[in-house]
Design a protein around this nucleic acid. Structure first.
Lengths: 140, 140
DNA sequence: TTGTATGCAAAGCGTTTGCAGTGAT
DNA sequence: ATCACTGCAAACGCTTTGCATACAA
């Protein structure tokens, strides 16, 4: 039986408010505005149960730790900004790609990640070459 | 100054012999055939230096630990089999995908992973539904 | 001989789990 | 009054690092 705790609500709200997939640590940071004592284990436990219930979905980009966003979006892809490292949803899709697979292989799905500059970073031409800024603050 | 140790050669050879990207642990297993005492730390150190020198390249699939393959292949993609979990190179590419990004975003590259059944697994119709077999032995 | 590379064990990092106490029902 | 949920700390799996030794040069 699921209980409705302040922690669970704060976690769900934090993810709902963000308009992009969040890392567990980002969820913690955001949700601690509502529940200061919140612990990271609770974030992981709730993220997992919300994901199992289908309320959240896991977003995996190559070489990145899992992020989480509200489910409901159907098949879609992601864009990662090389400057601010943030991840955005991309609702377009190249369509069926089974023609790309080698002979004898069957394709039932695909994952696609686009890389480049997000709107904010493209605007402020900060081609600072160094990688890894914080991961979320720079521009809203 | 780079030294030519038995360990380094064994590691390089193991990756060269495999015709697919390997996990560090798979590299260790394969290279221990040549150098029984080989340690995992040495595998990680050599994988890193070979990657830095450009001899290897890192293959990152969504939600997977990094694998490594010989560099030299230029832009290409990967296929992961849902049955045996092995990863294969795909030399085809859908081409320019910048049209998929939202307005104001600029795209300079993309990562693509195809999922389905590899040739071996498609042949032996083992739709066993459970995930995660060992990760390399089953066939070939 | 010299100093990089190795093997082992300890440390790191993100994530999960055990446990006693907290609080929603 | 229950019993699921929480916070803390310990445990985990993968990767990196410190250190004394081994071995290419």
């Amino acid at each position: 039986m699921e209980r409705n705790t302040r922690q669970r609500s704060a976690i769900r709200d934090a993810i709902a408010r963000a308009e992009r997939p969040l890392l567990p640590q980002e969820v913690l940071d955001a949700a601690q505005a509502d529940v200061p004592g919140l612990g990271i284990a609770t974030v992981y436990r709730n993220i997992r149960s919300l994901t199992d219930e289908g309320e959240l979905s896991e977003v995996n980009l190559p070489g990145e730790n899992p992020r989480f966003e509200l489910a409901g979006h159907q098949h879609h892809h992601h864009f990662q900004c090389r400057q601010c490292q943030r991840v955005f949803d991309v609702h377009a899709c190249p369509g069926d790609l089974s023609r790309l697979a080698p002979q004898g292989f069957t394709v039932d799905n695909h994952d696609l990640t686009l890389y480049g500059s997000c709107k904010d970073c493209a605007a402020s031409q900060v081609k600072s070459s160094g990688r890894r800024s914080a991961g979320g603050q720079s521009l809203a």
